[in-house]
Amino acid sequence: MTLPASLDEAVAALTAMPAAVPVAGGTDLMAAVNAGLLRPAALVGLGRINEIRGWQYQDGHALLGAGLTHARMGRPDFAALIPALAAAARAAGPPQIRNAGTLGGNIASAAPTGDALPVLAALEAVLVIVGPGGQREIPVSHLLAGREMLRPGELIGFVRVPLLHAPQVFLKATGRTGPGRAVASVGLVLDPARRGVRCAIGAVAPMPLRPLEAEQWVASLIDWDGGRILAPEALEAFGEYVAAACVPDQGEPVAPGVLHLRRTVAVLARRALGRALTS
């Protein structure tokens, strides 16, 4: 276990020990280690790297450190910047998990139920990857879809997220009232400057899904200069559109579980858009 104090040191440590695994909050990784599922040859702890524990502003964007904890992102100052990410962070589990788990860890472990992931997908976040060859940038969706991978010695350093200054919503359906794993989740953001609605559905597939046609269709209905009001029927149709796009039939007859999931996604998408437009 090494504990570098900067990203450069961390990259150097990972390059020196290619078998080492980086660990931040450890809420996924250490549980797997304790269960005997993983036995990393060495660990590189990222907890002492101060430069990735906060955020900074960068021409209309926020550059979020990968070491931001869910607890930190859930606080009101952060919520004022990126409300949906803050809501996802607050929903991400019990306080013990939120205090330890990090934004970068949520992306790196890429669990289908990762709560931050649909929000990052809806925000079209860009990952700033640091590695032995310097920095490079990849869209979060590319990493989650496996189109681009982290190379040896590379780390997620920062996450660049646009500051949209407009309502954003994160909702999830779980099996219980207390913290629980998402059955389905939705991140939805309004982008008035580009007159866009962007939405991603989490937990229904290995990576968050973007219903692009539904987004464009509903954005075209919204009166962006006026009250941004939509008829209930339009909200309903948006939900159905999103659900049909994100939850395929998987054979005939359609299984009851699929129908329920589709209905759940439709309700979440409809409510998310409704809340975004009325808040």
Binding site: A87, A91, L171, K172, T174, R176, T177, V267
Partner: peptide, 9 residues
């Protein structure tokens, strides 16, 4: 406190 929890769906 609605079904789905605080700040829930």
């Amino acid at each position: 406190l609605l079904p789905g929890g605080p700040e829930g769906a």
